[in-house]
Design a protein around this nucleic acid. Sequence first.
DNA 1: TCGGAAATGATGTACGTTGATCAGAAGGCC
DNA 2: GGCCTTCTGATCAACGTACATCATTTCCGA
Lengths: 342, 342
Amino acid sequence: MPRPTIHDVAKAAGVSLATVDRVLNARNGVRQSTESRVFAAMKALNYERDIAAANLSKRREYRIMFVLPKGGNSFMRELEAGVESFRKTFERERVRLGILTVPAFDGDALADALNQLDLDEVDGVAVVATDAPVVGQAIAGLRERGVNVVTMVSDLPTSPRGHFVGIDNVVAGRTAAGLLGRFCFGSGGSVAVVAGAMVLRDHVERRLGFDQVMRADYPDLNALPAIEGYDDADLVEKLLSELLDRHRDVSGIYSLGAGNRGVARAVAKADLPRRPAIVVHELTRYARAELQAGVFDAVINQDIGHEIRSAVRVLTALIDGRPIVPSQERIRVEIFMRHNLP
Amino acid sequence: MPRPTIHDVAKAAGVSLATVDRVLNARNGVRQSTESRVFAAMKALNYERDIAAANLSKRREYRIMFVLPKGGNSFMRELEAGVESFRKTFERERVRLGILTVPAFDGDALADALNQLDLDEVDGVAVVATDAPVVGQAIAGLRERGVNVVTMVSDLPTSPRGHFVGIDNVVAGRTAAGLLGRFCFGSGGSVAVVAGAMVLRDHVERRLGFDQVMRADYPDLNALPAIEGYDDADLVEKLLSELLDRHRDVSGIYSLGAGNRGVARAVAKADLPRRPAIVVHELTRYARAELQAGVFDAVINQDIGHEIRSAVRVLTALIDGRPIVPSQERIRVEIFMRHNLP
DNA sequence: TCGGAAATGATGTACGTTGATCAGAAGGCC
DNA sequence: GGCCTTCTGATCAACGTACATCATTTCCGA
């Protein structure tokens, strides 16, 4: 049997096509009792609206704006390039992608950008959130005016975003600790932690997960307080170099933000009694090179392609009021080492 | 500007709508010269056919059959359950999924099943290939009669399959070696290798990659010849127990096929001088439990959801004659350890 | 019991493509 | 030049839904 159409629903409910249409599209002018009869018929027939036909008829387009931090963060640049490269693929499906970059680590700037979006030109927004109240308010504002929002990479769970597309960063931190613990096994000493900035929720969460496992499973390793490098390679290099001078017993380094070129440079010029194990985040081309060179031991990654596709799937579903299947949208915490580079 | 339609193409080429349609759908009755004028116009306008509209008009459905090995292999059963759970999602997009199970490790049975598929009811086939000439011939037969085929999990590169959906198994083997090498570091000794059967190309390839890295990077570890457990837990248990009796210096185990419950049982009852490091494939619920229990050290995985989605995307593209974007279809070699379980 | 408002039905056009039919036009062959 | 075969154009009805208009019915309150 072919799938039921609105005609079948109309017949089953004993109403006209027009009425079914009114119910389906939430237009007014339908009595409560009639509406529920139509709903009952839809459920009985297991009716599902044919979105392709609906979109064709509506000449609908989904216009989705990706709002990303500006700057030298390679991961973000690769994310931007990823969105760019998906453009054509999605255009076939009536999805238009836009990109807007805003200053990093700056909640006010991000909120401004969100507030100034032209709502007549955007149906959905995917934003890498900075954790600041104004950002939450801006998201709420968008939501109120009918624009659906998902957060990417770094979440803002208190805001009315419809979904978070990204990895579980606590798990990511735990994973890093598990790896570093293994790699440093038996050697004791300190572990340096390099963060971007603690206004990014993902960094905070990674630190949290990292400490959980460190304390529980590797008590012989001493995790040092994080240094904040603001995802800037030069600053990271400077701060980490100073730290390595002070702590000669560093046997492991966990870099949970960006600026990993600074990590590599600081380690190269420090003369440590033994090579430290290094775990970083995001498989950018730099991280990949250092992995191959044997400088980094592991890279924890979130797949950019999966994230973009998931963001688009979720946003179009939210826009249509369709349900999303959370288990199909989970982004995995990936581990890369020298031997499994893609 | 909105995307061009066949009307625009017709106007631009100076022909009628009907002729454009003839060209577009490769019907006959169009002169060579006219055809090329139409193609030129399409290129000039950058025309792309609206597949949603076309499918609506054609009342097209994509009927895709997944052909999987029968039996107690948990990974395959979870793959089957995965296909089942994707059914509803894809039905919305006019894609109907079917499942056919055939005896495992049996090229003839698989070939028979493929040959007996009702071609009026199937547009595309995703098959977990057994490496046998008859299977290649069966795939060629399908292809000739207009059915598109992709291989999944285990490839058959010599056959005319349109694509392979799965991980690079050489890389997977290399990854396993990298992990085991790390985990056994300094302890020397032997490494046991448990395979399913060498008629499965994925198993052969994993072994290959494993040996590459073992020899190059961990010469102090001695990789033993593989035992073939035919993905059967009881047989694996028996064979591995015997092996562990003979080789008291086993410090690591790599199970590159299924039957991992047998691995866990054999290790539990053997009394070895020290706990061996264990790396296995496929994050089934059993593997997950052993990982959590600290029996398995790492699990190499291919994400079933990604594979199913990729298979469907690729098959529908092949059926429509659309191009596929290989970089978007790559399946990652995932590593799971205790701390990054999803 | 009636007027007016609210609810519903009937109908038509559109979205971009398919696929069919039929009428002409162009071309080749004798 | 006539005839027959290929091409080509014109037109139409679908596919399932959206949306608008106008006509009709139902309901409610005074």
